[in-house]
Design a protein around this nucleic acid. Structure first.
Lengths: 186, 186
DNA sequence: TGGGTCATGTAACCTGTTACATGATTAG
DNA sequence: CTAATCATGTAACAGGTTACATGACCCA
């Protein structure tokens, strides 16, 4: 998966591992986090597969740059991946795993838990609304402005998801509060 | 993560690897998929960590059962995990990774893509509404009916998520259609 | 007689995480 | 003087996937 993300970025233009790492951390982290070490390792795989070539650029003072460029075969692989359809709605969710087993903890603690989730969701939403991932910085990077519509769609997903997440957490909280109030009413 | 899911199940009662595997595949797969091989491997880790003990139960005709039971230390670990708060709203999303790079494909193909996503979302939603993960079968398994509320919350999340997913896919589709119609109107 | 269920796993591989290592330049 | 930025990675480990292997019993 990360391989294809890197191919997608290289398809916009040649980049060094460092730049790819920065892009993931600064702009794509809300839907994909990647470790620096993994990026450098995957770049070696891309090279081995013939999907990218590299070129050392001498610098003085700083370490040399290792600039990667996508090949024709890399572009084919990128397109193959984009066309393949293996779409699953449900994704692995640590959140739901934890929710599922919460019966082990007290009502009060769980009310607190969902309250915290709602708060975290609200912070995430606010963050996204105030400083949406820097679409403009990609626009400069890429000649074709048509891409921006797809970038915005991922942001839109983030906003809609965050809202749903908050609604869900609040609903859960209310259900537990109702349960608690039933008991204490006796 | 899977370790803790297994611990959570063992906390309901002793189980064999086969039963754990069935439970994940039949009932928890909408938020966590697990390979049979991984379950058997993780059970060895639980044992090694002192979180579970096992007992061979002789059978004739069928292979012997290997029944696992949670230990006190395993219960502590389960509770430690439930109490720890490491909640991230955003999760790694292959869906968004693919969406982000769709500028590489044609408008028409992408309209088709989002249309398919909306359909897949609708099928998932229908499936969940018609046959929600067998909450009843857990209820039999577990003495404490209070757990059911948390199980239902995970199902509720599934329903809300599926709806949001469909709305998003349809919105994306409409945006692209509008773009196409602008161009063809010239 | 053929497929499904019960029931166990191993081996190899791929992907992601954590920890470590180096070193110059630049801005506060 | 110190922290951040630029820029490269390696090693070990943890977690997840794919493929393979075995074998009896039961139902249609």
């Amino acid at each position: 998966m990360l391989k294809h993300g890197i191919l997608g970025l290289l398809n916009y233009g040649s980049m060094t591992g460092y730049e790819i790492d920065r892009t993931f951390k600064d702009s794509l982290s809300y839907f994909w986090s990647a470790q620096t070490s993994q990026i450098y390792r995957e770049l070696q795989v891309l090279k081995k597969n013939g999907w990218a070539t590299n070129e050392i650029i001498k610098q003085n003072g700083k370490p040399d740059k290792n600039l990667f460029t996508i090949t024709e075969s890399g572009k084919e692989e990128l397109n193959r991946w984009l066309m393949e359809d293996k779409t699953e709605v449900a994704a692995r969710s640590p959140l739901l795993m934890k929710t599922f087993f919460r019966g082990e903890r007290s009502l009060e603690e769980n009310i607190e838990y969902f309250s915290k989730l709602a708060g975290i969701g609200a912070d995430f939403l606010k963050g996204m609304q105030n400083e949406p991932p820097e679409i403009d910085s990609y626009s400069k990077m890429v000649e074709n402005p048509a891409n921006a519509i797809y970038w915005k769609m991922t942001v839109e997903y983030g906003l809609m998801y965050a809202q749903m997440y908050i609604n869900w957490a609040e609903k859960c909280k209310k259900e537990l509060e109702a349960l608690r109030d039933e008991h204490t009413a006796d």
